[in-house]
């Protein structure tokens, strides 16, 4: 692997398990963004908050994917912030949608803790954070 010398040690692209993680993150980046795009372009007026949240979730997944992929100091920071927002997002939106449906008339990836996506959105930020923690710089 000639490119290994230029790629940070903790870049997820550099290992098999990391590539699988990136694949799953990529699938969610794609599906959340595509969903938001369709919702916003076709019936934005129905539930602006939920659709903006969809778009935001899509952006968070994209930045988490990129951060995990490139690694290094900057990649770690991007991934750490994205995965933390992702975790808070799925928990807060999950609690709000379970407790009260008035503010979320339509689904997002994070609604009801991601039940529409097999609860993978609930598990994914933990795996992302675990990845960052496991590849923390050794003192």
């Amino acid at each position: 692997m000639p490119e290994a010398s230029t790629r940070p040690q903790d870049a997820a692209l550099g290992s098999g398990l990391g590539r699988v993680l990136l694949l799953v993150y990529g699938i969610f980046a794609l599906s959340a963004s595509a969903r938001a795009l369709v919702q916003i372009t076709t019936h934005f007026g129905e539930a602006p908050l939920a659709y903006l949240l969809s778009a935001f979730a899509g952006l968070v997944y994209i930045s988490a994917t990129v951060g995990l992929a490139i690694g290094g100091v900057r990649g770690r920071l991007i991934a750490l912030v994205s995965c933390s927002i992702e975790l808070l997002g799925v928990l807060i939106v999950g609690i709000l949608t379970v407790a009260d449906t008035t503010d979320f008339p339509d689904d997002t990836v994070w609604s009801r803790f991601g039940s529409g996506y097999g609860y993978v959105p609930l598990v994914l930020p933990f795996i992302g954070l675990w990845w960052i923690w496991r590849h923390r710089p050794r003192a």
Partner: peptide
């Protein structure tokens, strides 16, 4: 998924195929 699995000739390639078939 199969293309990516070919690029990853380890156990993780099999996992990629598995995830593709689950989705």
């Amino acid at each position: 998924g199969a293309y990516l699995a070919r690029l990853e000739p380890t156990r993780w390639g099999s996992l990629i195929l598995g995830i593709a078939c689950l989705v």
